[in-house]
Design a binder for these strands. Structure first.
Length: 129
RNA sequence: CGGGAAGGCCGGGCGGUCGCGGCCCCAUCCGGGGUCGAGGAAAGUCCGGACUCACUGAAACAUGGGUGCCGGGUAACGCCCGGCGAAGGCAACUUUAGGGACAGCGCCACAGAGAACAGACUGCCAUCUAUAAGAUGGCACAGGUGAAACGGUGGGGUAAAAGCCCACCUCGUUGCGUGCAAGCGUGACGGAGACGGCAAGCCCCACCCAGAGCAAUGCCAAAUAGGGCCCGCACCGUGGCGCGUUUCACGCCCCGCAGGGCCGGGUUGGCAGCUAGAUCCCCGGGGCAAUCCGGGGGCCAGAUGAAUGAUCGCCCAGGAACGGCACGCCGUUCUGGACAGGAUCCGGCUUACAGGCCUUCCCGCAUU
């Protein structure tokens, strides 16, 4: 249950010149399941799950099941979620936390992007309480 | 101008800013630059192959599955092209699961008298009894039912009729011409006189096929497990085994042992397989066409929790409302871009698809 990044934290997470953190992506099913047991916040366009891990990185995962739609709809929802995470997480996320964003059918792909961003910030504040 | 038929194509474009995946280059590091980056269906996974592993091979038979007019194309096909037959349409053209119903079995609902070695409801005719009507005999023409009714049209014939007889059609046998062929055309026969349909029911005939699939498969690392196999020596028999049966070929085979050698299985870690190919574009030639041959040029996704997104501007199609008039054009505002995304790779089929473009042909009207 230990991944390679734990053994050698080769990339210390610190703001680079452009102001972005290096985000790591969740890939193991076990990581998703542990995050699902943490705090969660429901919004119109997505569901946010979060849990602290104690490691010096911010990690993010995305889930779009077949309930979201066909392959085009799933990929589009995942891309929009990935974009808001890329934009907002470096400034609003907390180090040492894992986050999982879950797409919702037909809403994630059609909601205005600004609304999605504002909802994401609000959801982050809720799970950090 | 209106209506219709066939085939092909596109499937938004350009430019900012920030970002994503592969490869290459520069850089001590941070990082920077270049380049390429989803479809006509990438889809459904329905056929056909390549490739990999497994499998002792060949032939015959069996079993199971598939295909089914003829010719051609192809690596192959159940695909494609060109013909033939049949059906539909004024036509352009379209559709077609199209071998065999004297090898055998089976089925033919409802309606109808009768649905397969015929039978007679309403009828027709003759004779008798004789008021309507009935009895006996003859007939299978007409009516009605049905998806389908025991040949069709015309004539002769008869009490009324019927392939009862005749001509043509049809069916069978056969000759000639033509075509590679399916077939088409035409002739002969004192040949037949009804012989129903269904084989997308079993079946028969001809031909083809036969396991598993890239999570295939190979390599590396780690941890786990403790076993298995081969060689050699020795030894036995003309016997047994080798995934349907038989034959042939080929291979293997008790137990024991001084010794020598080798390794399997599962695990979603990594690497390979992984993208240059029945490939794409252009030109020339053969062919009615599918397609083939030759020459030149190009490199065109290789991810693996899986890369194309966010946002802004202008333009291009489309839609709606309002206004103007020369009545199908102009202006303003708003809206707005189908179906859908690789996962080993090809050839097909099928299904989904907003809107638009091009070519050829047919019919009708008008004009010359």
């Amino acid at each position: 249950m230990v991944s390679r990044s734990d053994i050698q934290p080769q990339t210390p997470v610190e703001p680079c010149s452009a102001g972005f953190l290096v985000l790591e992506t969740l890939k193991k099913r076990a990581d998703f399941q542990r995050t699902a047991r943490g705090k969660r916040a429901h919004k119109d366009g997505f569901v946010l799950q979060a849990t602290p891990t104690g490691r010096p990185t911010i990690r993010i995962g995305f889930t779009c099941s077949k309930k979201v739609g066909n392959a085009v709809a799933r990929n589009r929802a995942k891309r929009r979620l990935r974009e808001i995470a890329r934009l907002m997480l470096p400034t609003h996320g907390k180090q040492g936390w894992d986050y999982v964003l879950i797409g919702r059918a037909s809403v994630t792909a059609s909601l205005p992007f600004d609304t999605l961003k504002q909802d994401f910030v609000a959801a982050l504040e809720k799970v950090h309480q």
